[in-house]
Design a protein around this nucleic acid. Structure first.
Length: 805
DNA sequence: AGCACGCCGACT
DNA sequence: GTCGGCGTGCTC
């Protein structure tokens, strides 16, 4: 008797263990570790993952597996083990770990229905229930609830007239296209064509098409567009038996309509040769090693990636390339597709659930060898990984900010060590953590200090905006920047203007008393949206109208303030009416593909100025950009986050890298109210080493990473007192279990003290070595299990948090 | 997470 | 005496 151990789809403490099920004889060869199954669980049926097969169980009354949901496992052995690792390292449930490794399309959808097991007994039903069914044999459970008939239905169910059933469904199906084929041979076809009545023109064209392309089967869409016939015409021919139709599984290919010219490897420079040699030897020896590829923008890191991957492919192995979501641009994808063609799968959030699922299936079916994708691509189900590359290693988007709170870099290193293959972390501004590890020799440091074309770095002017104000310039453009803007316009060169992300940009303030409108639920400043003339909360979506008078002092001088991209755009058109501006922010790039369209337009020279947020800081590589302006470098610097200096430095460096990448020299203007800050000062000459030393000193003094590890516990509750008292208890408990070396900060209100009407308190633990910490944190979760399950209390734990707000 | 079971207050 | 409130505990 075969028994399956199953992790069921119930994310809760009590169910975070395997449940045993009998495997029916007929399913013995299908139900293997890694397949999803439909199992009875209590009164309902739910999805589960088979994690192991055994022959005995401690449990007496085992139920049988209802049906498998896969014919081949969706998780291989390595990923099953990786799931355990994830659970352990992020304190998440097993089921969440498995689900995060798979495309969302594979997540189960549950349907609760009521059916009539015996249609003939329909008349015996109570009148109201009969009306509800209204002739149908099944109805959704929700309808019963909506009509307040649950109690009545229960009676009918006890009488055996109706039955409540639970269905487990995949969220999505494979896409299938109708394909048409001729059933007759050529001469027979010809006969049929001749027999057609003269008015059957459409049929004639279709048949002639098959006469020409006889052996092919063709999908409906192509056939219709090739012949100009209608669907009805084809259907008639199928009915006549002259054609046959069948469904063939196809991939939704987001890049399917594009042609990619093949590109050969480029010759490497000496510097590149030196850097790639140790990577290649690690590949050859199947040796796990982590490389930190530290190379300035434009130093040719991508070519290193491409040629390393080529070596991996030559060995018959596979590669994962992680790229931050925002730089996963078509340009980036193109470089990989041009080199490796159809062997590349692309995964990013712009794809629909179906497209993601299809890309994933290409990997699962061994049809591709390289995956280029954002964070979650790290779980690509390859079996012979030969290399993992993480580009822009310092990017915070590699950290998932919801459960399971994993960092793709950690997962990469974990996977690479089981596969015995190298990890390459690439960046022009490495995270302090990684650079420190390289300094210590944990990672191997590879250096590409020069730009490929020996282009000098752009000159950077740092403009003190306080000075501008003192001189009477109240505009958002300094005189320096404005002059340069005009100059570029005259020369027909392009400018990129960079503004920090929205939310910090535009808010409503009373000019008389300084009152700022906050969200009633979240206590953060409401963002003003000019387009709808509304104020919105960034966190909970709360909206309200702009007050006409100040609620504090009744002054009428209350209006929006600060600089959003829209406002900059307005001022630009006022000051430089002849300038053509493209604005890129969340509002203008919301729709799929609009991001690309705007960039293309800019590349084609359809605009002089590209104005945008974060998203334009990366990957832009257009020859005609000779000026980059950063409108306010401070916004990021003053965020309540110990990494804000690092982020500011990285951002400024990154943005400066956009200028003058080709023949024309570049200039950068950075506007700031704190020009003396080292992260701004050193970003100008792109002096990473000095920045690193300065910032390391600060981190050491304040006991932050990389000198200390962090863990963050956040408690939220609708009642302030409850949130505080629980956080206090937790803090006391943790400190009793820590060594004297550790530091615990808190309880304090979270930087955002209230979200969606819940008060948030937190404590932050700084430590060097606390082997017992994870166990302690787990026991806290256990202790509050009941209260968290009911939803009144929320406790989130982040081992190694990236956002401390 | 659901869902059943079970033990206390306000109704026919 | 019963309906129904939601606290408690189980699901292979």
């Amino acid at each position: 008797m075969k028994i399956a151990s199953v992790i069921v789809d119930v994310p809760a403490k009590q169910t975070d263990k395997t449940f045993d099920y009998l495997i029916p004889q007929r399913l013995e060869n299908v139900v293997v570790p890694g397949v999803r199954v439909n199992v009875p669980f209590g009164p309902r049926n739910i999805q589960g993952f088979v994690t192991g097969i055994k022959t005995e169980s401690d449990f007496k009354k085992l139920k049988e597996i209802v049906e498998p949901l896969d014919l081949t496992p969706v998780l291989n052995k390595e990923l099953l083990t990786l799931g355990d690792w994830l659970t352990e390292h992020t304190l998440c449930y097993k089921i969440s770990a498995f689900q995060v490794m798979l495309p969302a399309a594979l997540k189960a959808k549950y349907e609760k229905k009521v059916i009539l097991p015996d249609d003939r007994k329909r008349n015996e039903l109570e009148e109201e229930i009969q009306t509800l069914f209204n002739g149908a044999t099944e109805i959704g459970w929700q309808e019963v609830v909506d009509n307040n008939l649950v109690a009545l239905l229960k009676k009918e169910s006890d009488r055996g007239l109706v039955e409540v059933v639970y269905q487990v469904k995949d969220r999505l199906r494979k896409k299938r296209l109708k394909h048409i084929k001729a059933t007759l041979n050529r001469s027979e076809l010809q006969v049929e064509i001749d027999c057609l009545t003269p008015q059957a023109k459409g049929q004639k064209v279709v048949l002639e098409y098959f006469l020409e392309n006889h052996d092919d089967q063709v999908d409906m869409r192509t056939l219709l567009s090739a012949t100009g016939a209608s669907q009805a015409t084809v259907k008639t021919l199928v009915k006549k038996g002259l054609l046959s139709e069948k469904y063939i599984e196809v991939y939704r290919d987001p890049y399917g309509e594009r042609e990619f010219a093949h590109h050969e490897p480029l010759p490497l420079t000496n510097a590149q040769e030196q850097v790639i040699t140790p990577i290649l030897s690690s590949i050859e020896d199947d040796r796990h090693e982590v490389f930190l590829l530290y190379g300035v923008t434009g130093s040719g890191k991508t070519e290193i990636y491409l040629q390393s991957i080529q070596r991996v492919l030559n060995k018959g192995e596979e590669a994962i390339v992680l790229v931050p979501e925002i730089s996963l641009t078509p340009q980036m994808v193109k470089r990989f597709k041009e080199r490796f063609g159809d062997l590349v799968a692309v995964m990013h959030s712009g794809l629909s659930a179906g497209e993601k699922y299809d890309e994933w299936r290409k990997i699962q079916r061994r049809e591709v060898k390289v995956v280029v994708g954002a964070r979650s691509a790290i779980f690509a189900p390859f079996e012979n990984l030969g290399i993992i590359i993480i580009d822009e290693e310092h990017e915070t988007s590699y950290k998932q900010e919801e459960n399971p709170r994993y960092h793709a870099r950690d997962v990469a290193i974990q996977r690479a060590s089981t596969h015995g293959c190298p990890v390459v972390l690439g960046s022009a501004t490495p995270s302090l953590e990684s650079f420190a590890r390289a300094q210590k020799g944990v990672y191997t440091l590879l250096n590409l200090p020069k730009r490929m074309n020996e282009q000098p770095l752009p000159t950077v002017d740092i403009v003190d905006m306080r000075e501008e104000l003192r001189e009477g310039n109240r505009s958002m453009f300094s005189r320096n920047l404005f002059e340069k803007l005009q100059d570029r316009l005259e020369k027909g060169e392009q400018t990129v203007l960079f503004l920090n992300k929205r939310g910090h940009s535009s808010f409503v303030m009373c000019r008389d008393c300084g009152f700022v409108v906050n969200c009633p639920n979240c206590e953060i400043t409401l963002t003003y949206h000019r387009f709808q003339d509304l104020m919105k909360c960034h966190y909970c979506g709360h909206e309200e109208k702009v007050p006409t008078t100040c609620p504090e002092c009744t002054s009428e001088h209350i209006r929006y303030f600060g600089t959003g991209t829209q406002k900059v755009e307005e001022e630009l058109t006022k000051l430089l009416p002849e300038a053509r501006v493209i604005r890129m922010d969340v509002d203008t790039t919301g729709r799929k593909g609009s991001h690309e369209k705007l960039l293309n337009a800019f590349q084609e020279g359809e605009a002089d100025i590209l104005l945008g947020t974060q998203m334009i800081a990366k990957g832009l590589d257009f020859p005609n950009i000779t000026l980059v302006g950063v409108l306010s470098a401070d916004t990021m610097l003053h965020l309540p986050d110990f990494r804000s200096s690092e982020k500011t430095f990285q951002l400024l460096t990154q943005v400066s890298g956009r200028a003058g990448r080709h023949e024309l020299p570049g200039e950068v203007v950075v506007q700031t109210y704190t020009p003396e800050h080292y992260s701004i000062e050193l970003a100008g000459p792109q002096d990473y080493d000095r920045f690193y030393n300065q910032e390391m000193m600060a981190r050491k003094v304040h006991k932050y990473p990389p000198f200390y590890y962090l863990s963050l516990v956040t408690v939220s509750h609708e009642e302030l007192m409850k949130a505080v008292s629980v956080t206090e208890k937790i803090t006391r408990f943790i400190s009793s279990r820590l060594s004297s070396e550790a530091v615990i900060l808190g309880p304090v209100a979270s930087p955002i003290p209230r979200i969606k009407n819940r008060y948030r308190y937190q404590c932050l633990i700084k430590y060097k070595k606390e082997p017992e910490l994870r166990t302690s944190l787990k026991s806290i979760l256990d202790h509050y299990q009941q209260e968290t399950a009911s939803g009144s209390l929320q406790i989130s734990m982040d081992l190694n948090p990236y956002i401390l707000m």
